[in-house]
């Protein structure tokens, strides 16, 4: 057995072991958690959903019904070879979940997500404030805060890494208007919309490129026919840059992240240990190609393993609520 085979066998053993694991005397919190899991799993199983600890399918293959992708869609690809191309599955029915982003005057990017109201009312233990007639509950974990507001039909969540209830947070919360299935954000002066739209399957491409003798691995993420704001990405600081003739945004965290739109496609290019000039040169070198042709040009294992997404199951709601949700972010 070579090392690769040993790794695969180890994965099988771990899956098997975790399917039958019987941990000794879990702490109270975990016993409670397990009861909740069992309750959740029971609901799931009763609904004909996936088995909780069932042995999962091979990586890359959805466990639900697969549906074909729009293979003729034009995407942007590197002129050189592609290492890997994937189409992400989406857990959500198209139209029921919207996502958008906006940039504050200080350069911070805020995300806003909209979906059906599954909360009912805001939990009472939430840190709450009413801003311009709308009550928001604040919830934070791992330094990303979500400010949630609900009505009978819809929940909206504003995501940020800004300090709790800061001036910019208050400004954007005051701009949020929630009515039935519609959320509109009328941005105040100094703010910029990065757009919004339904959460759709995202295409991911990994490739190597060398600029002036400096090789690096680049990760490209794109959504066809969607504005940039609908392409979910990290919230945090972005600065404006030009990507060829298109306006774009550059994030300089641990990785350099470039986001822009081109011919109806929202794009995000990321790499570490590259300069701004290098990532811009790679971005402007991309060429258009139909999705199915790009997939066929990638290595067979990568293209074959990720060529499908999953069928979608709607979340039901009161009959008085609209089927879809809409999110509009309006510039000042």
């Amino acid at each position: 057995m070579n090392l690769d085979q040993r790794f695969v066998a180890a994965g099988d053993v771990l899956d098997l072991a975790t399917a039958h694991a019987t941990p000794s005397a879990p702490p109270a919190e975990h016993r409670r958690a397990r009861r909740l899991v069992v309750a959740g799993a029971a609901a799931v199983l009763a609904a004909g959903g996936a088995a909780w600890w069932a042995r999962p399918p091979a990586p890359g293959h959805g466990s639900m019904t697969s549906v074909p992708q729009p293979s003729a869609a034009q995407i942007w690809v590197p002129p050189s070879s592609i290492d890997r191309i994937e189409v992400d599955p989406s857990f959500f029915e198209s139209g029921t979940r919207q996502y958008g982003q906006m940039r504050s005057p200080s350069g911070q990017v805020f995300g806003v997500g909209v979906g059906e109201n599954l909360l009912g009312t805001l939990p009472s233990d939430r840190d709450r404030r009413t801003v311009d007639g709308t009550t928001f509950g604040r919830f934070e974990e791992m330094s990303v805060a979500v400010y949630t507001a609900v009505n009978e039909c819809t929940a909206v969540g504003v995501q940020t890494v800004e300090p709790a209830w800061s001036d910019e947070v208050m400004a954007v919360l005051a701009a949020v208007h929630l009515e039935a299935g519609t959320v509109s954000v009328r941005l105040p002066a100094g703010w910029t919309s990065l757009g919004s739209g339904p959460v759709v399957p995202v295409i991911r491409i990994q490739f190597d490129a060398t600029i002036d003798g400096h090789p690096a691995t680049y990760q490209l993420k794109e959504a066809v026919g969607q504005p940039l704001g609908s392409l979910e990405g990290p919230v945090g600081g972005l600065i404006p840059v030009d990507v060829g003739d298109s306006p774009g945004w550059l994030g300089n965290g641990e990785a350099r992240v470039l986001r822009w739109e081109r011919d109806g496609v929202a794009l995000q290019l990321a790499a570490t240990n590259v300069t701004t000039d290098e990532i811009l040169r790679v971005a402007t070198s991309l060429v258009q190609m139909p999705l199915d042709r790009a997939r066929s040009s990638a290595p067979p294992a990568a293209a074959g393993s990720t060529a499908t997404t999953t069928a979608l199951i709607p979340v039901s709601q009161p009959a008085s609520c609209p089927t879809n949700r809409t999110l509009t972010i309006t510039n000042p």
């Binding site: 959740g40 799931v44 959903g49």
Partner: peptide, 16 residues
Amino acid sequence: TPERTVADEFARFVAD
């Protein structure tokens, strides 16, 4: 019945 369909969606999340 909201619970059923929410469970469906969560099941999809769990399965993947």
